[in-house]
Design a protein around this nucleic acid. Structure first.
Length: 353
DNA sequence: TTCGGAAGAA
DNA sequence: TTCTTCCGAA
């Protein structure tokens, strides 16, 4: 497509690697494969996650109820935004929902039956299908590491052994960002891109591996000029924690327990397991909070739960909001309705349900 | 409103 | 491969 949408440009990695802070761009798994003709185009589920992270779109789409469950409060608006992003002026909810339905078979999404416009992410799958961390772990340990089947699937592992401290040691032995050598270990020197074969890449990439959306992963916070709407893939925004059933057998408690045996983990200024665990709402305490299952949203350290934190939400977001597809060079006829700034619709509060 | 088949685009 | 578009069925 000869689309010149600004949003697409914003999504493209900066030409100069020096300007591309390692770990702060979308990892490759967030995009279509390089081999795909439509590579580097955002995928719908990723876009949905973006919207869900943005407080200003809470009236349009928001987390609701169960873990990973969200409701599209304003289907037309979500479709409009998606159409803008993809330069498809004629996008509507019917088409968008068809795309969402294709995620059913992929186990990325599933429908919450009986609830209008309500879907649910299977985050373990979202990450697994795109970034098979456990395969990496398996490669590192020589043993298969598979997820237990969750309520929505996930990679079944009938004979999956528990993750051992030795395995964790292997995983955590990866150089950490912020330490000498970390960059070369986690990023290829030629492209400065995240190495997808690094032993513990999600610490730097923002991908948790299997249980968290990209927005919850990283310990860092800052503005992301290279991301649309200043979207911070590491923004620790409001997000419901996952039910225990979605975690692999070793996660999180055995991991937390094992961290005590890993001197390097949690130390230093680089990404460690500590923020990862913090992001999951877990602490290094061996005890899982009893109220976890009842907490619909993640209570962030030092914040009031759904309050945006760590600078991922920036007031200057609007500068990057793309609400105009007039720049689209194709399929742009009849796009008058797309010129309405999203901000103008702010406070509309959705269509109700 | 939701689902999923079919065809096609990129 | 990932949608986009269209459409009939439930």
């Amino acid at each position: 497509m000869d689309c010149s949408c600004v949003s697409d440009l914003l999504f493209a990695p900066p030409a100069l690697p020096a300007l591309w802070t390692p770990g702060f761009a979308f990892p490759d798994w967030a995009y279509k494969p390089e081999s795909s003709p439509g590579s580097r185009q955002i995928q719908l589920w990723h876009f949905i996650l973006e919207l869900l992270q943005k407080e200003e779109y809470q009236g349009v789409i928001a987390w609701q109820g169960d873990y990973g469950e969200f409701v599209i409060k304003d289907p037309d608006e979500v479709a409009r935004l998606w159409g803008i992003r993809k330069c498809k002026p004629h996008m509507n909810y019917d088409k968008l929902s068809r795309a969402l339905r294709y995620y059913y078979n992929k186990r990325i999404l599933h429908k919450t039956k009986g609830k209008r416009f309500t879907y649910k992410f299977n985050f373990s799958k979202v990450v697994l299908v795109n970034y098979p961390l456990l395969d990496v772990a398996a490669a590192a340990t020589g043993s298969p590491l598979l997820l237990t089947p969750g309520p929505f699937g996930g990679a079944p592992g009938p004979d999956a052994p528990p993750l051992t401290p030795e395995t964790l040691q292997t995983l955590f032995s990866a150089p950490r960002l912020g330490e000498p050598g970390a960059r070369t270990a986690l990023f290829t020197p030629e492209t400065d891109k995240l190495r997808l074969d690094s032993p513990f890449p999600f610490l730097g990439s923002g991908a948790t591996g299997y249980s968290k959306p990209p927005g919850l992963l990283g310990p860092y916070s800052r503005a992301f000029p290279e991301c649309p709407w200043n979207f911070n893939p590491y923004f620790t925004g409001p997000f419901p924690k996952l039910p225990p059933s979605l975690y692999p057998p070793f996660y999180p408690n055995p991991l937390a327990n094992s961290l005590g045996h890993l001197p390097a983990a949690g130390a230093g200024g680089g990404p460690t397991a500590a923020p990862l665990l913090a992001a999951t709402g877990e602490s290094l305490s061996p005890e899982r909070p009893s109220g976890l299952a009842a907490a619909p949203r993640l209570a962030l350290p030092g914040t009031g739960g759904s309050e945006p934190a760590l600078g991922g939400k920036d007031d200057s977001d609007s500068e990057l909001e793309i609400t105009d597809v007039s720049a689209c060079s194709s399929d742009s006829e009849g796009d008058e309705g797309l010129l309405v700034p999203a901000k103008a619709k702010e406070g509309k509060g959705g269509t109700g349900s």
